[in-house]
Amino acid sequence: MAVAAITENYVGERLDRVENFHGNQVLYVGWDHHLMFCAPVAFAVPPDAPFSKVLEELIPGAFSLHPEFGEIDWNQVEWHLNAESFTPDTNATLAEQGIDHKSILRFATPGLDGLKGSGS
């Protein structure tokens, strides 16, 4: 029983199925230990966009106001996709490297510990 309901075998409407996003899918991105950004952010982005779009447009648009942003060494960044360790391919599309609808992409920047080392 997937819900207690008066109707037998009740099935709920999936409000956020990918078809509802007009060709986009939802991607969440979080910068670990940088809580000046209060929560991970959400983007609507086409599945056939290259990863470079995330790297060059979406991430700077969301996180560049942080004083440590300019100091990031992108070759040293540690990525996680849905909690699994991940190595992005800049030229491949999101779909090609398994970044699907409502996936969580996290990046960690060891050595950059947030404002005054506070994780902010």
């Binding site: 997937a2 819900v3 207690a4 309901a5 009740y10 099935v11 709920g12 409407e13 999936r14 409000l15 956020d16």
Partner: peptide
């Protein structure tokens, strides 16, 4: 426990 309920969340 009740996914058929919360798939409907108006996020």
């Amino acid at each position: 426990h009740e996914p058929e309920k919360y798939v409907q969340s108006w996020m």
